[in-house]
């Protein structure tokens, strides 16, 4: 696959891969939903809620946020399902909604952290109100924390350490097995961009894991 193909050819290619409703296993349920069948929609919820939760959790980084994001994503999907024209699989469309909401949540969190006043001198308080012991040693870096966690958590931390644009491609490709083409559709970027982002994301995670685990 060449990232340099012209957009028209790429689009028609995408239509072949993602646009044929007969290839979408959810086409029947989606049609029922468009007619107002709530049971059909519930079937889709049951089928995809776990997948969406994992995508959202890996991108947003917070389980609580991910739960809310998934609920909002399904409500948004129901609200707009009549506008869904079947140019991609329903799953691709639903994932795009979830990713957008997750990215928006990330932006909100970043903005909130930027505006929160932080005092360098205030003692750290634990949940029961006690002053936590402030280690005089090094600042707890990602690597320091990773040493105390198991491998899975280290992998998760390495993924979280990526920039959002790189994080989402690695989540979609290596965790959720979407094709390059589908990832491009979801993120509204060219396939070449997906490839380059994925290469860099994998390299960064590899380096991170090497630091965390010693060797792969």
């Amino acid at each position: 696959m060449d990232s340099g193909t012209n957009p028209g050819a790429r689009l028609s290619n995408k239509m072949i891969q993602n646009g044929d409703p007969t290839t979408d296993e959810d086409a029947g349920l989606v049609s029922s939903c468009k007619r107002g069948d709530l049971d059909a929609f519930e079937s889709l919820v049951r089928k995809y809620e776990k997948k969406m939760l994992n995508i959202s959790f890996r991108i947003a980084g917070s389980h609580e946020d991910a739960l809310e994001i998934v609920q909002d994503a399904f409500v948004s999907a129901y609200r707009n399902i009549k506008n869904f024209r079947g140019q991609s699989r329903f799953l691709t469309w639903l994932t795009a909604i979830t990713i957008n909401l997750s990215k928006n949540r990330l932006k909100q969190l970043k903005a909130r952290h930027c505006h929160e006043p932080v005092s360098m001198d205030d003692p750290i308080r634990t949940e029961d109100g006690q002053v936590a012991a402030d280690p005089p040693s090094n600042e707890p870096t990602v690597l320091d924390r990773m040493e105390r966690q198991d491998v899975q958590q280290k992998v998760q931390d390495c993924i979280e350490a990526l920039e959002p644009d790189f994080r989402e491609v690695i989540v979609l490709r290596d965790m959720q097995d979407f094709s390059y083409d589908e990832i491009g559709t979801m993120l509204k970027v060219r396939e070449g961009t997906v490839k380059s982002r994925l290469f860099r994301a994998r390299e960064d995670v590899k380096d991170c894991l090497k630091r965390a685990l010693g060797e792969l």
């Binding site: 991910a66 992998v155 290596d174």
Partner: peptide, 16 residues
């Protein structure tokens, strides 16, 4: 790279 991808794929999914 293969090992990294393997680690990533091994990450357990959270249940809803």
């Amino acid at each position: 790279l293969n090992k990294t991808i393997e680690y990533i794929k091994k990450v357990e999914e959270v249940d809803s």
